[in-house]
Simulated scan of single mutants.
Amino acid sequence: MLTRLRRNMWVRLSLLALVCACAGAALYANWTQARGAVSGLPLWVLPAAALAGMAGLAAQMLAWRSLLAGLGSALPRAAAARVMFVGQLGKYLPGSVWAFVAQVELARDWRVPRSRGAAATLSAIAVTVAVSLAVAAVALPLSSVEAARRWWWALAAAPLLLACLHPRVLGRGVRLAARPFSRFREVAEAGPLRVEGGSVAASVGWTLVAWVPLGLHVWLLTWAVGGDALRSVGPAVGAYALAWVLGLLVVFAPAGLGVREAVLVVALAPVVDAGAALVVAVLSRLVMTVADVGWAGSAVLLTRAPGSGGGGGPEHADGAASDPATGPG
């Protein structure tokens, strides 16, 4: 029954329309809040920040793709982009779980078993949280003492979480999470879930790379509202890394709404006043919403889901996408 609903074009279109409406509403609300501040910025700042945000999201997509490949489903880059970026629009619905569900279901179009899709997404969340907290733990104590003092418990967890990324530990956690679903035929057919050390290392590497442009977009905005160019680097990178994690963990807030802003205002206090920090927070949310929508739209326009030409489902997928294991790197 659920499989038939998943393949039904009208159900998919209705869900996509709902998600796009929520993302559009978020974009409109962010623009309404940021419109007054935009007029005082150099014209190039927001486009540059949006491009930096998109570059960071692209690196995060490659981190997720590396984990999925290590689990046995190596998607082509274009297919991985479509699955992740379209699925990520689900975070604009109340409850971040919808992005998770959407990614797993969209990956089924490329014959990725739900068990592998879920394992890759859960592992990617673990990598993102651990690496991002490590970035914040390095940057904030030296640049934003108040933020480090207020959220010390999160920063202190970074070494432990990094240790949990060892393939044996991460693999055991993934298999434990999948155990309640082991009775389903699809899980059994997918085989045992084994997390490879190389895929974890690649994912960690791509996540570290992602924080260069992600931090850059906040630094550009902080500089544009009056922050010192050199002194703003540490607070900008550390603040957004911590804000990203805490926003991700508060699952009832759509895309971390409110949580990221609170962290940014406190962490940017050493370089800009509270009003300017709030402007940075609002502009950052606008920029990252544009980046999310831009990537999702590009992925839909530039790629075609298997079976969209009339096949009707993953069983009729053609070309490289029909066999993820042999798809192009």
Rank of each mutant, 00 (worst) to 15 (best):
T3D: 08
N8C: 06
R12F: 06
L13G: 12
L15K: 06
L15E: 13
L16D: 15
A21C: 03
C22W: 10
A23S: 08
A25H: 08
A25N: 08
A25R: 03
Y28F: 09
T32C: 04
S39I: 15
S39M: 11
A49I: 07
A50P: 00
L51T: 13
G53M: 15
A55K: 01
L57R: 04
A58K: 00
Q60S: 10
M61L: 11
L62C: 14
A63T: 04
W64C: 01
G72A: 09
A74T: 11
L75T: 07
A78H: 03
A78P: 03
A81L: 08
F85R: 01
V86Q: 15
K91L: 06
L93V: 12
P94N: 11
G95V: 11
S96D: 07
V97R: 01
Q103R: 06
R108L: 04
W110T: 10
R114V: 14
A124F: 15
I125E: 07
I125Y: 06
V127S: 01
V131D: 06
L133S: 14
A134S: 14
A136V: 11
A148T: 03
A148N: 06
P159G: 08
L161M: 10
C164A: 15
L165F: 12
H166I: 13
V169R: 06
R175M: 12
L176Y: 14
L176V: 14
R179Q: 14
P180D: 00
R183L: 08
A188L: 07
L193C: 05
L193G: 10
G197M: 09
S203M: 09
W206Y: 10
L208D: 04
W211S: 12
V212P: 02
A224P: 04
G227Q: 05
A229Y: 04
L230E: 09
R231D: 08
A236D: 02
A236H: 02
A239Y: 00
L242P: 00
L248E: 07
V251K: 01
A255M: 03
A255G: 11
V263T: 08
A267F: 02
L268C: 02
V271Y: 02
V272R: 02
D273P: 07
D273R: 07
D273V: 15
A277G: 05
L278K: 04
A281P: 09
S284D: 13
R285C: 02
V287H: 06
A291P: 01
V300L: 04
L302F: 12
T303D: 10
G307L: 10
G309M: 07
P314D: 08
E315A: 14
D318R: 13
S322W: 05
P324E: 13
P328M: 00
